Computed example of a mutant assay.
Amino acid sequence: MKKLVVTDRSQCQACLSCEIACSEAFYKMYNNFDTPCIRIDVKKDNSLNVKACNQCGVCAKKCPEGAIKQNAKGVYMINKKLCTGCLTCVDACPKGIIAKVEDKPTPSKCIACGICVDACPMGILEIQEVTD
């Protein structure tokens, strides 16, 4: 299974380069609340949490239209033709990282493309082949 892995969360500097790169790739703009499929959050203890999709498949199981399927590499993809924009997947995502922009009909999720990996100046993101 191909997925995005955060190798060392403690090294994150919250520069948001990963969020910005992801947002611009999907939406050609950045809005930290709506557009990235990766998120940097500050926890209550002021430490940083990098939220990245682990391809768990909860979104696919909850999608009433069957619009989210796992591809041959183990990545869950949203079929924009089948998606009705009901946002069940957005609500179901345990990490809250399925993006939905108001003026777009369908949400977006991490597809393990590696754009955020290339953007991270700390080198703490990797696309890995993981066996379950």
Rank of each mutant, 00 (worst) to 15 (best):
C37T: 14
C15F: 03
D45A: 07
G57P: 08
V42I: 12
F33V: 12
C59D: 08
L87V: 01
G85H: 02
N71M: 07
K51I: 05
C56R: 10
E24N: 08
C113S: 07
N49M: 08
E24Y: 11
C12T: 03
T88E: 13
S47Q: 07
I124N: 12
I97S: 02
L87R: 13
D103S: 15
C110G: 01
S17I: 02
T84Q: 11
C120V: 03
F33Q: 12
K62Y: 14
M1W: 08
C56I: 11
K51G: 00
A67M: 04
C56L: 08
D91C: 13
K100E: 09
C116E: 10
S23L: 04
T131V: 13
I127F: 02
A14I: 02
A99E: 09
C89Y: 00
V58M: 15
Y30H: 11
Y76E: 04
K109S: 00
T88V: 08
K69Q: 15
K109T: 01
K61R: 12
C83D: 05
D91R: 15
G74L: 01
A25E: 14
D118H: 04
S17Y: 07
M1E: 13
I124Q: 09
L125T: 05
K61V: 10
Q55Y: 07
I98R: 03
D132C: 12
K3V: 10
V101I: 12
Q11C: 06
C37P: 00
Q128T: 11
I97C: 01
L48Y: 04
K109D: 02
S108W: 13
S10N: 14
D34H: 14
K73D: 13
T131Q: 12
S10M: 09
N49Q: 12
P105G: 10
D103R: 08
K51F: 09
C18F: 00
N54W: 15
K100Y: 14
L82D: 10
C53E: 05
D34Q: 14
C12N: 07
V6Y: 05
G114Y: 04
C83R: 06
V50H: 00
A92W: 07
V42R: 10
A92D: 03
K80N: 12
D34F: 15
S108K: 13
M29P: 02
F26K: 13
L4E: 05
V50L: 12
V50C: 08
N54P: 01
